[in-house]
Design a protein around this nucleic acid. Sequence first.
DNA 1: CAGTTATTTAGCAAATTAGCTAAATAAGCA
DNA 2: TGCTTATTTAGCTAATTTGCTAAATAACTG
Lengths: 125, 125
Amino acid sequence: MQRVFEALASTPRRKILALLAHSELSAGEIAARFDMTKPSISQHLAVLEAAGLVVSEKRGQYVFYRQVSENLINALNGFVQEVCPVARPLKRESAAIGRERAKAAEADAGTADAGGPAPRRGDTA
Amino acid sequence: MQRVFEALASTPRRKILALLAHSELSAGEIAARFDMTKPSISQHLAVLEAAGLVVSEKRGQYVFYRQVSENLINALNGFVQEVCPVARPLKRESAAIGRERAKAAEADAGTADAGGPAPRRGDTA
DNA sequence: CAGTTATTTAGCAAATTAGCTAAATAAGCA
DNA sequence: TGCTTATTTAGCTAATTTGCTAAATAACTG
């Protein structure tokens, strides 16, 4: 938990995670997208890996990184429950993600606002 | 966003947030629960406030702090969507929470304070 | 094998953070 | 007014983090 939040406290590391959202990438491919040296990126990747947010796999000459979204979701979820108990339904949703990825996407497309007052804030912060 | 994650990167600050989950507390009451000097706690509170995760209100001699759970949820949610799009159902839950809280606030005080701060009660459970 | 590419490790300086003590500010009370 | 409590600000040191360059390790290629 501590490691997860420390990992997320750095902007470059959050950007790396976002970059890995859709596909795995080699260390070099990641580094190419940042205005930073390869050793520095390597270090950030090590921090993310120590936090369990990504895993690496060496294939031949390259080291590929991909994210471990369950760990991210579980960590944030565990924290939110402790700090903000009203958000408890998040836990159920998180558990459901593992089982029903496809269904979840489908349901999301068809789910609209139930008719209550609109949320007070937008979806970003 | 940056400030939120930096604020959450510190264990004492996460503990403070957890402490404020159920009710507001004065700076002194918070400090009394930590093995740390009051000035240090005051500093942590300032960081949390700069991140929008808590708000303070001076009443007489005391300064009371309470959490702003919407901001926490919105920040984490915005990030998760960016990094882990598969977790989209979380967004629906977050919206539901917003509606719940809006309703609760409405029921709590018949007079709406359109320009004021977040709902007054720290009763998040 | 020698040469090239991909990645990490080592070691360093600059910047930031965490916690402390002492002092300042603000409010309540006799 | 003067005394006490509550909280924050100032100023300091130690520890941590960041990003760099240079060098080491690993794997592919001719």
